[in-house]
């Protein structure tokens, strides 16, 4: 474990708790893409299948359990409890356009052609594009609530910090995983546009609004 990965994990945890808190407190999931949340749920479930078989540490197991639980709770709030506030007219990104190619790629490009490894690879590829429906929704509505932009900033920062973690591990542990690194770079690049808007607007107290 290194500081970059630890801060990255905490930023990730902050992001998903922030979103859950926002939906619960405002009793509304307006501006939140349910499709992205479904894909994140899929990411955690396919990646943490080894939750009970491969014990790494208390921290590792606890965080995995929290990620899965919070993802499921968020999906429940969006599609069941606060279903009336779900903005399906703006959450129109076709998930199958992401899941099918990612599933195919996971079969073609992976480290080991075993079920667990292919599911892990699928999870890594899917995570890199899972935010697209959310970013697409913001581009359609033209704006995002401030709390939602904080969620996106924390979520985008987590994988950016992981990239630093991978550089660190390469130089100090001789460890690197090209699949995770490439997917992590793609994922972070997708946030660049948002990061720019966040820094130039939200940090100056303005609302996040995309140029119409």
């Amino acid at each position: 474990m290194n500081i970059f990965r630890l801060v990255g994990d905490l930023s990730h945890l902050l992001a998903i708790l922030l979103l859950l808190w926002k939906i619960w407190k405002t009793r509304s999931c307006a501006g939140v893409s349910g499709k992205s949340q479904i894909m994140f749920g899929l990411v955690y479930i396919t990646r943490y299948l080894d939750l009970f078989t491969n014990f790494i540490s208390i921290y590792n197991t606890t965080m995995k359990a929290i990620f899965i639980a919070v993802a499921i709770a968020t999906i429940y709030l969006i599609y069941f409890k606060f279903k009336a506030t779900y903005d399906s007219n703006h959450d129109t990104f076709r998930m199958e356009f992401l899941i099918v190619p990612v599933g195919g790629l996971a079969f073609l490009v992976n480290h080991d052609f075993t079920a667990l490894e292919i599911l892990w690879t699928f999870s890594i590829y899917l995570e890199s594009v899972a935010i697209l429906p959310q970013l697409f929704m913001i581009s359609k509505t033209g704006e995002a609530e401030t709390i939602t932009s904080h969620y996106l900033f924390a979520l985008g920062s987590y994988r950016a910090l992981y990239i630093v973690n991978w550089v660190y591990r390469y130089y100090f542990e001789g460890f690197f995983d090209l699949i995770a690194i490439v997917a992590g770079c793609v994922q972070t690049i997708l946030y660049c546009d948002f990061f720019y808007l966040y820094v130039t607007k939200v940090m100056h107290g303005k609302k996040l609004s995309l140029p119409a």
């Binding site: 990965r5 994990d9 990730h12 080894d50 491969n54 790494i56 540490s57 590792n60 965080m63 995995k64 990620f67 480290h111 080991d112 992981y162 973690n165 542990e173 460890f175 690197f176 995983d177 995770a180």
Partner: peptide, 10 residues
């Protein structure tokens, strides 16, 4: 070695 190590990340 890479396989084993990879699984320690979230």
């Amino acid at each position: 070695e890479i396989q084993q190590k990879k699984k320690d990340e979230l």
